[in-house]
Amino acid sequence: MDLRKQQIAFYTALLFGALAAMGWGLKTAGIQGAMFGFFASFTLGGGLMCIWERSVVRSAFSLMATFCGVAGLFILLGHDFLAMAQILIYVGGILVLILFGVMLTPPDLNERQLPRVGLGVVAVVGALAFVGAKVAAVVNWAQAETLPPAETKAEQIGAAFLRADGYVIAFELAAVLLTVALVAAVYIARRKPSDLIDLTEEGGY
């Protein structure tokens, strides 16, 4: 199969997979199930596109579908704060940086000729087997009658971050990590004395 036919086959399969997921959700859990199918196929479809696409920029861009899908799943669970934080951080921040890095990297033209489909199938099957085994080993399946009361409000999340029996250690560790990253970035980006131009000369400021 040439490249174009492969592309068409892949995206058709993706579309039908999404429709099937939505239909199944509609059948089992009504409109919420259909929404779940929609967002889940966004999440997984974005991931699949990311490993399928040969252009790195398109791969990176397809992650947007994944991040938005995850945000949609958060909204379905009633966690609107988490959903918005997800979009703000992942879509608005991290993905932009990934795109930046990818766009400024010259494309590797040899990459297009690599036979990848066999390897891709192996990788997908391996990943599915791993996730399946992990899920089967860890999860204790039981359908809940009612959902546990979710701590969805921003106030509750903030309080949970700062409670001693909550997530205060994880929170502080993240803060330290970010500070280290910030200092390191400044260190790398700082000008050495030899790089400095005489700013009093014409052309400086």
Partner: peptide, 11 residues
């Protein structure tokens, strides 16, 4: 937060 999130996508 919603406003900040969606306007951030504008980039």
């Amino acid at each position: 937060l919603y406003v900040l999130a969606v306007t951030g996508v504008g980039v």
